[in-house]
Computed example of a mutant assay.
Amino acid sequence: MSFPRSPLSSSLSTSPSVSSVLDAHGWDSGWAENFAPYAAQGLVPGRVIRVDRGQCDVATADGVVRADTAFVTPHDPLRVICTGDWAAVDPEGASDPRYVRACLPRRTAFARSTSSKRSEGQILAANVDHAVITVSLAVELDLGRIERFLALAWESGAQPTVVLSKADLVGDPVVLSHLVEDVRAAAPGVEVVPLSSATGEGIEVLSAVVSGGTTVLLGVSGAGKSTLANALVGEDVMTVQAARDVDGKGRHTTTTRNLFVLPGGGVLIDTPGLRGVGLWDAEAGVGQTFAEIEELAAECRFHDCSHESEPGCAVAAALDDGTLAVRRLESYRKLLRENQRLVAKTDARLRGEMLKDWKRKGAEGRAAMAFKREGRLR
């Protein structure tokens, strides 16, 4: 379907109003170039700031419009319209309701596996440059969960940052320093920011990180994401609920993914608290999260080293001399196995290879047991 060419679509690069509104939401020459075919149809560009039950709010040069998503609801859950997408929308007066006619190809996408048994992925945010993983210091640190978030963030193409929220609740500065170092050890190459929305500690540091591009806030319920969003936006845009004292968990303050323009530049997407952090085809992300193990593995004598009992294993040597923590290796193996199982559910060839490997290991185990029994009989 095409519409009469509108003044807006013919002046995407030059109109001051378009520039000021769309640029604030992340519009650039690359998006304008990709949008050109839709502009020729008379459609107008906008960024999706919220999706809810078959409709979405889209920020356009003329303001936020409500649009129907019936034309952008594919069967693939990874391709459904999502907060952060750039969309081609009906011009004003073209239809009632107005429709999103298409979405521009995503530059990045933050996805996880769903809790269903159907091996489906779920898009949490689109076209994200920074992923801020919010971890509450009001409860005991779960380094394994942080590593999961990091694997998904690296896989998405975003640059992760770990924020340790509620730092004011840690009374001893020495203890806080140790907690920060523990997280840094689990997040090589990632900035770790201790932060308190109550005292303002760390807010300026994080504001500098998110001042350019699009940032998504991630974390479990009760981590303080909504409070942090309010601090970054500079006003109470999100309702805040108290977390339980017993376990630090809270009810879902945020129930939809919302996009806000930050006063210092940049765009922020707040997401609901995640109960499950399942990987979704994140082998590269896991490798980057455990970069030190991947580097050690490259020095092993055998390229297919299992890092268990082979001679010349650099990973085993690092375990022995204490430069690599046993917990890190166990977490690395766990995430790789989980990711492989997930991929195998949708990859018949990989399923076959895994089945052969299981059969081989089973045969080796049975042979070893038979050898032991025969030895005892003699």
Rank of each mutant, 00 (worst) to 15 (best):
54 G>W: 03
88 A>H: 04
43 L>W: 04
106 R>C: 07
130 H>P: 00
121 G>Q: 06
109 A>W: 01
28 D>N: 15
144 G>K: 08
126 A>P: 01
132 V>Q: 01
67 A>I: 07
114 T>I: 08
57 D>N: 09
44 V>M: 06
94 A>N: 07
135 V>F: 04
78 L>P: 00
99 Y>A: 13
132 V>W: 02
102 A>C: 11
37 P>H: 04
36 A>S: 07
72 V>A: 05
70 A>M: 06
52 D>L: 15
104 L>K: 01
32 A>F: 07
36 A>H: 00
93 G>W: 09
82 C>T: 14
88 A>W: 01
120 E>Q: 15
38 Y>E: 04
143 L>T: 04
56 C>H: 01
111 A>L: 14
60 T>G: 10
111 A>H: 12
92 E>G: 01
58 V>I: 15
97 P>T: 07
56 C>L: 13
84 G>E: 06
122 Q>H: 11
56 C>R: 00
80 V>F: 00
81 I>Y: 01
100 V>F: 03
106 R>A: 05
136 S>L: 04
68 D>K: 05
117 K>W: 12
120 E>G: 02
39 A>S: 07
34 N>P: 00
74 P>R: 08
26 G>E: 08
120 E>L: 15
145 R>L: 11
24 A>L: 13
134 T>Q: 08
46 G>V: 04
25 H>G: 06
53 R>F: 10
73 T>Q: 14
73 T>D: 06
79 R>K: 13
138 A>H: 10
117 K>M: 12
116 S>W: 10
59 A>V: 09
72 V>R: 07
85 D>W: 13
52 D>E: 15
151 A>Y: 03
22 L>S: 03
69 T>N: 03
134 T>G: 03
55 Q>K: 10
62 D>I: 09
90 D>C: 09
135 V>Q: 04
63 G>Q: 10
47 R>Y: 08
85 D>N: 10
24 A>H: 03
79 R>E: 14
34 N>H: 14
24 A>E: 11
123 I>D: 00
45 P>W: 03
104 L>Y: 01
126 A>F: 03
81 I>T: 11
75 H>S: 14
90 D>Q: 12
63 G>H: 07
94 A>F: 06
116 S>I: 01
101 R>F: 09
66 R>K: 13
79 R>C: 10
125 A>C: 08
28 D>C: 13
106 R>W: 08
23 D>N: 11
37 P>T: 05
87 A>F: 13
118 R>F: 11
24 A>R: 13
107 R>Y: 05
128 V>C: 03
141 L>I: 03
78 L>E: 13
25 H>D: 15
86 W>Q: 11
36 A>E: 12
99 Y>M: 15
26 G>T: 07
141 L>G: 01
52 D>W: 12
